[in-house]
Design a protein around this nucleic acid. Structure first.
Lengths: 149, 149
DNA sequence: GTCAAATACATAGTGTGCTATGTATAGGCC
DNA sequence: GGCCTATACATAGCACACTATGTATTTGAC
């Protein structure tokens, strides 16, 4: 039993993720929205302000990755930081009106993209795919946590 | 129906892919093998030599991406390029003995990693997951091809 | 045979992720 | 109060992906 790409869940996940990134970029880059911005946009969509640490946890990326993403979003006028009155080490990040104004369009594009990607699957199959992927993610996170120690 | 991470196939694919990359890095980086090397290693495993273009198509990455990967692999002593006698524009890439000697170990690590990731799924579910992901990939590639024109 | 178009690869610049490490503030112990 | 540790963030350096573009060779039309 040899290893081929088509039977490697790792390879297929990576491949699908790159295709998703390209598809989102194609449709949102003209609007100044990059894929890494999406978790931040959705996390702050309701108008709340969050710390960088909380945003990193929400997006499941490391802190320096989120720092770079926020720097680009700030450059692009999508977020603003103001000092956290309760802790001078941290800042509270919130969306700008420019970002809020694009939320509807962004959400529509993302949902349509997800729908297009799963258009060949029956509703039950779509649900199964999401469930199975979540179980894979849980297994990999458990493996990572075990290796940590 | 709001968009949450847990129901977004795009987000879950990206998340799983990052976890896979980290897991592979954790186990193969000490051996000098990076994740981007894997498609090249497996494509050349049988001793054949391929052009950069063929390797890029095999790995489903763009040509400059493969050029950079091959440069790192050459730096790490894993591949060597020799001029293609039939076409002076291109070079034929082949594994070095150093790379060939690590193939068994690499294949074992990748297979074990895939097995660990799907350990919580029944065999039928594992097969369904792979099939569904392939259908998602096919849909995204069709979408990309349509946008291309 | 010549020249224009196509092809193979290289390079530059950027986005997004990681690890390792530095700096400033907060919090708790004595 | 002073000090040690923990925490929040910044920075540096690298891997790996992309697009855009340049260079050299090949191919095909004439």
């Amino acid at each position: 039993m040899t290893l081929t790409r088509e039977t490697s869940i790792g390879y297929l996940s990576n491949w699908a993720a790159r295709l998703f990134t390209r598809a989102i970029e194609r449709r949102l880059a003209p609007a100044g929205i990059a894929t890494a911005y999406l978790p931040v946009l959705f996390a702050l969509a309701d108008g709340t302000a969050m710390t960088q640490k909380a945003l990193a946890q929400h997006a499941a990326v490391e802190q320096p990755t989120m720092a770079a993403t926020l720097k680009r979003m700030e450059r692009d006028g999508l977020v603003q930081r103001r000092p956290d009155p309760a802790d001078r080490r941290s800042a509270l990040v919130a969306l700008t009106p420019l970002a809020s104004g694009q939320l509807n369009r962004v959400q529509t594009v993302v949902e349509q993209n997800n729908a297009r990607a799963m258009a060949n699957l029956q509703p039950a199959e779509q649900q199964a795919l999401l469930t199975h992927l979540l179980q894979v993610i849980a297994a990999l996170e458990a493996d990572e946590a075990a290796a940590q120690k």
